[in-house]
């Protein structure tokens, strides 16, 4: 019996969200007296254990279908009743297909540890962060995706050598990838612990230099409001909110963003929120932990200096 953790690698290392998945799966495995088994798809020779007892590598996991097939085989081989995945765009697609293959109960964006006495109950955010619900998973098998920054990573533990595993899946031959553009060298927004974000208050794309400076001194990712990406001031994948990326970093700094309910829907689960806005009545201050009422064009450069 085992709990399976699907782990994503970026630049040869476990992504932060996957470290959390590993810690979560191994804590859960311990609680129910099973083994925590990690599954990676990329080439990597060893990973920190985070309490898992082994990590296996599946080959040819090139799309969501192939990955779901390989995971289903491993789940069967290990008689696993539970598969935990990070809540990335890719893993979300994998989880849907996997849940059908395993005839499992599936819940995405789970927050925190489940209740396992009697029924298996998890908590998740609904209405785009405006409420929470508890979900009972009735199926004998279960597939969960874990919301980032909702559990913590704990101790990294000793390195585990990644074992080869024969399980493979076949990619969907009806889909051909013809091109790809990835932000290079930047900190990926969904993975970032610190995020600096700016809105229409910045008046034009030429004023983003100070936002990037602030992000740089902090080691933060950059984000923006919807009107900003709609106007092509910033790339679409930086847009956070109801219809954009949903993030839950430790720190979210909002500069010249009014704090509309749709914007808040994507950022309200950030641990700490700082708002910089000229308007003392900006709704964002009501959702903030720290605020500066002032002109971003003066405040942000001073903040950069103060951080240096």
């Amino acid at each position: 019996m085992a709990v399976i953790a699907f782990l994503e690698i970026e630049g040869g290392e476990l992504k932060k969200s996957s470290q959390e998945v590993a810690a979560y799966a191994s804590a859960l495995a311990k609680q129910v007296g099973e083994e925590g088994v990690g599954v990676v798809a990329e080439d990597v020779s060893s990973v920190p254990s985070f309490g898992l007892s082994k990590v296996v590598k599946v080959s040819s996991c090139t799309d969501a279908k192939a990955c779901a097939e390989a995971l289903a085989k491993i789940a069967e081989e290990q008689s696993a009743s539970l598969v935990v995945l990070p809540h990335s765009t890719f893993a979300e697609s994998v989880s849907a297909i996997l849940s059908i293959k395993l005839e499992a109960s599936a819940v995405t964006n789970v927050i925190g540890f489940p209740e396992t006495a009697g029924s298996f109950v998890v908590k998740k955010g609904i209405y785009s962060g405006k409420a929470f619900t508890k979900v009972t998973l009735n199926g004998a098998k279960k597939v969960l995706t874990l919301k980032k920054n909702s559990f913590g990573v704990g101790e990294a533990g000793a390195d585990l050598t990644v074992e080869a595993n024969g399980a493979t899946g076949s990619a969907d031959s009806r889909i051909t990838v013809t091109g790809e553009e990835k932000a290079q060298g930047d900190i990926l927004l969904p993975e970032a612990d610190l995020v600096v974000s700016a809105g229409r208050g910045l008046k034009g794309p030429e004023n983003w230099g100070m936002v990037e400076d602030l992000a740089k001194v902090l080691g933060a990712a950059t984000a923006c409001s919807k009107p900003v990406s709609d106007a092509d001031w910033r790339p679409h994948h930086e847009h956070v909110g109801q219809t954009g990326v949903k993030i839950s970093p430790n720190l979210y700094i909002a500069i010249g963003i009014s704090g509309s309910i749709q914007h808040l829907a994507g950022v309200s689960s950030s641990k700490t929120i700082v708002v910089i806005n000229t308007d003392p009545e900006a709704p964002f201050f009501k959702a903030a932990d720290y605020g500066i009422i002032g002109d971003a064009f003066e405040v942000v450069p001073r903040l950069v200096e103060a951080l240096k």
């Binding site: 599936a106 619900t133 009972t136 998973l137 009735n138 199926g139 720290y290 009422i293």
Partner: peptide
């Protein structure tokens, strides 16, 4: 395969400290 129950609203933030 799933049942939703026990809805709750998020805890309010502690309030904004102005600098």
């Amino acid at each position: 395969k799933v049942a939703f129950s026990a809805f709750e609203e998020p805890a309010p933030r502690k309030g904004c400290t102005f600098v």
